[in-house]
Simulated scan of single mutants.
Amino acid sequence: MDPIIAATHADPYPYYAQLRAQGGLVFHERLNMWVASTARAVAAVLAHPDCHVRPAQEPVPKAIAGGMAGKVFGQLMRMNEGERQRCPRSAIEPGLALIDVDEVNSLVAARLITPHADGLYNAMFRGPVCVVAALLGFTPAQGRAISELTAEFVACLSPLSDQAQLDAAQAAAEHLRGYLIELLDDSDNNSPLLAGIRGRFTGDPETLFANLIGLFSQTFDATAGLIGNALLAVIRHPLLLEARAEDVIAETQRFDPSVQNTRRFVAAPCEIEGVSLDSGDVILLLLASANRDPQLNDRADVFLVDRPQRRSFTFGAGRHHCPGHVLALGIASATLREILAHRPALEQFAWAYRPSLNGRVPVFRDAS
């Protein structure tokens, strides 16, 4: 076991507890990086101005630099600091916070969800992207195409992708950009979300295209994992079938999050939690471990749907806190509710986590 393999381990949480016992910020020799495992250490790193989301010498991964996927990656607010992060965020975040819950519920309910493995896959991975596409003003048919393209594009975000997947991601980025150009040129678009974003945005069009693609890509794996891990919680604890979907999702994102870790890159010498860090150091932040820290949540290893004062790092914190966390929780809750309404025989599904260095996203298959 190591802090990266842990993300897709059957049960990484006892291991995370061992790491917390060793100290909040500890150097891992084999991985050649610092590991932040406690709530206090994770919070300190996320808040520190010299801990950046990308290494200064490689703002875009070499494997995708030069193509459209690389251009999109380099303009994403989540992959930038300073004004390149603040400008698109200030345009996009306010609208995401104002989306009507009933509209999200209606969009999810309108989708056909079937009680078998393929149906679960579409509900988890394709459905949430289709909802975001609809909120921006795309038609249902366009939303389905965008969800397929997003599935191909997200491969550029994973170091585990092979060349064929990276090539497909480059093509998908081109196609997604084309869809957005047409959307922004459509004078009949009546999306309040898109109108608000356009009204607040002051940057260049390519940055806007990139960050709208970013909405799709951030929705894809993270929301799928949240829904899938909630289903696993229901399988393990059938009494959760009687709980509100919103409460199950809220506790799942703390107890067994789809994003297990993230990284920060030290841009200048600094000291965090008594540890001296040098420029170029890499810090792996174990968000899932911090969520289970007893200093953050009482009875942290217990799944409590009625947990008071629930606290979590799943959606980040500070300047890079996920701007769409309310929407993500809403889509996941509505989707879980619809899946369970079809009464699938959950105990008959087999499942495995998708290969990942930071995500915990189960994929279900029919056991037979």
Rank of each mutant, 00 (worst) to 15 (best):
L120Y: 09
P88Q: 02
I235A: 10
R89D: 00
Q22D: 10
S191A: 07
N358T: 10
A91K: 00
G225Y: 07
A300T: 07
V266M: 07
R111P: 00
F209E: 01
A300R: 03
Q170C: 11
A222M: 12
G228P: 05
L215H: 01
H325R: 13
I197K: 03
L160Q: 08
R264V: 09
S276L: 08
G214Q: 01
Q218Y: 06
E152Y: 08
H321K: 15
N211C: 02
Q142F: 07
V45C: 14
A172I: 06
P12F: 03
N189C: 15
V26C: 10
D100S: 14
Q18G: 12
L285F: 11
R20S: 01
L136Y: 05
V248Y: 08
T139Y: 02
N32F: 08
C322R: 13
P238Y: 08
L149G: 04
P362E: 05
R30I: 03
E271N: 01
L327V: 13
G316T: 07
F220H: 15
N211I: 02
C156D: 07
V275Q: 12
L357N: 09
A328T: 10
G127A: 09
Q309I: 00
I272A: 03
R86H: 12
F364S: 09
H320A: 12
L357G: 03
A65R: 15
L277R: 01
S158M: 01
D50W: 05
L184W: 08
A164I: 04
V154I: 11
